[in-house]
Nucleic acid binder design. Structure first.
Lengths: 333, 333
DNA sequence: CTGTTAGCGCGTTCAA
DNA sequence: TTGAACGCGCTAACAG
């Protein structure tokens, strides 16, 4: 591997000069710059990133911590993050938190220890206080899918409460009055917020929230399956169910289909997330669009602008939107 | 940040001794080791990974290059890779190749330039020759989902031809004779191999392969949609269709359902990959299990053993297996 | 078993 | 505009 020294020898200049042409900034005469460039090309010179990092204390890397890598949710987000960062020659180091506080904190330590210049965090188990303190440390962080007032400028966030509201409101408009709810795990912020939205929609329409018509699922298909079984077993009547994410809808619908029910004729469903598969599930899912990939992109751009000082435009407003497809139907009278 | 020097001062030993206790290997008396450990703890010492990498020429990182990050396929693989590597304190840097030769090669350069100790590659567009040459370079590589005879020891591979065979054989056993095929992009190795398997199964049962009953899809839902429309338009009769992956089955089934058809009563389907969603699609997908997550894990373990010299057991045989669920049905006579 | 010393490759003063 | 020299924090001989 050619080093900066080899280049300087070949070009007949000093190390410092080579370093200068690499880092654009300083003033170098066009003539010597060309000599150096030629030498670099001839030697197929690639700077040693470790040496650069050691000397400059900047690694050009960002750590991304997500709850999980499998499942339909994080892939699109990671894809956007990778693309945006890679375009600016930064690299991304991944870590998984498994929605567990100890693991999440350990992962943060791991990534910081790895010398990441910044962190993108999608964490659920860790406390607000921890994140606030972390944000005051030397490594900049951006939070995805979480809102903490004290560090709101670092939060890339979708209004989950509004999303939950929209889901239920859609059913209400379709004439449904008895609406069941399959929630996400109550220890997850977004799950609680979505449920809050559901309850607000109910309240605004003068309907009481019936705890017996609410099941706490796990955000996975099985959660939908379990929820549906619970709801049927409850004996309570209901004409529609909203699930806190699309995976649970798919599980829920699968048990109905197995029972020979017609969906949405006999039961309406609204999901949440609008995962890519949602439109290919039968019936096509009516759901709330969750622009997770855009949020990933924005997180990356935010870092590019604020940490790496690139001159980039960053948009910043996200709103949940209803995507009406086929799984929810006007209530027959 | 405390440095190794600070620790050595506090412990009253030399830099080298501190380095020795960090890297376990060398002999250090238990007494001084304890002194050093205490000093490290007291200073909350964290080694600087850049300096370590620069001095040792080892970064404890592995680059993972995949075709895409979204979609249901790579998530489980990445999850296993991250978990296995992380357990040994290695970190993973991700890059995306987009099934494009130039991008793939660029990504390889990028990862090597980033100082990765090894690479896990899931590449499709790049040539065998390129990979063979790359494997002779200084950075060890492991290939996932691709077989190249000359470097077979570095290939983590599933027999796609056999998988394709099993899919079609299953339908044959169910009495189907007119079997359509929706293939993946012909420029992808696995797509061709799966199709080969399909053709072999047909041939072994004395059936002719009808090119008109074969459509080249794109491995996405839309590919299945397009394929199904093509097949119906062809006017040719068929009682079953095998799709080269589950996403295309889901697209294909969705058009049938839209047409009011009963699946599998009127048409049988077999997919490939056994993605997590396969069991929640309606009807539940009969498909070929593709243990991609295990392959990811094995790739990671292989590197741990052969590159990082960990003492780890690595299993190595993968076979595709049919998972019979509901989307394929005995042909009524 | 432990300390000294010389790099690893590059960024960055400070002079010239 | 350019060069010399030092330092980043750590590893790895080599000596003792």
């Amino acid at each position: 591997m050619a080093t900066i020294y080899d280049v300087s020898q070949l070009a007949g200049v000093s190390l410092a000069t080579v370093s200068r042409v690499m880092n654009k900034n300083a003033n170098v005469s066009e003539k010597t710059r060309q000599k150096v460039l030629a030498a670099m090309a001839q030697l197929d010179y690639k700077p040693n990133t470790f040496a650069q990092s050691l000397a400059s204390n900047c690694s050009n890397s960002v750590g991304v911590l997500v709850s999980q890598l499998d499942g339909p949710y994080y892939g699109p987000m990671m894809a956007e993050i990778e693309a945006s960062l890679r375009a600016e020659n930064k690299h991304v180091i991944i870590a998984v938190g498994h929605s567990n506080a100890a693991t999440e904190m350990d992962s943060v330590e791991f990534l910081i220890g790895r010398g990441c210049d910044a962190l993108i965090l999608d964490v659920e188990a860790v406390s607000d206080e921890y994140l606030i303190e972390l944000s005051q440390g030397p490594t900049p962080i951006v939070l995805i899918n979480r809102y903490i007032a004290q560090i709101s400028d670092r939060c890339i966030y979708l209004n989950n409460e509004l999303g939950g509201y929209l889901a239920t409101e859609h059913l209400l408009k379709l004439g449904h009055q008895e609406i069941a709810y399959i929630s996400g795990p109550k220890n997850k912020h977004d799950a609680c917020e979505r449920l809050d939205g559901h309850m607000r929609a109910l309240a605004e329409h003068g309907l009481a929230f019936d705890p017996q018509l609410c099941f706490e699922g796990n955000y996975k298909e099985e959660g939908g399956v379990d929820g549906m079984r619970y709801l049927f077993a409850s004996g309570k009547p209901f004409t529609a169910v909203v699930c806190a994410n699309d995976q649970m809808v798919s599980g829920a619908i699968s048990v109905c289909l197995e029972l020979g029910m017609k969906i949405p004729e006999q039961l309406s469903f609204v999901g949440y997330d609008n995962i890519p598969f949602a439109r290919y599930i039968s019936p096509k899912l009516t759901t709330i669009n969750n622009p997770i990939h855009e949020m990933g992109k924005m997180a990356a751009l935010w870092l590019l602008k604020n940490v790496f000082k690139n001159d980039i435009e960053v948009m910043s407003v996200f709103s949940p939107e209803l995507v009406a497809r086929e799984s929810a139907k006007q209530l027959a009278r």
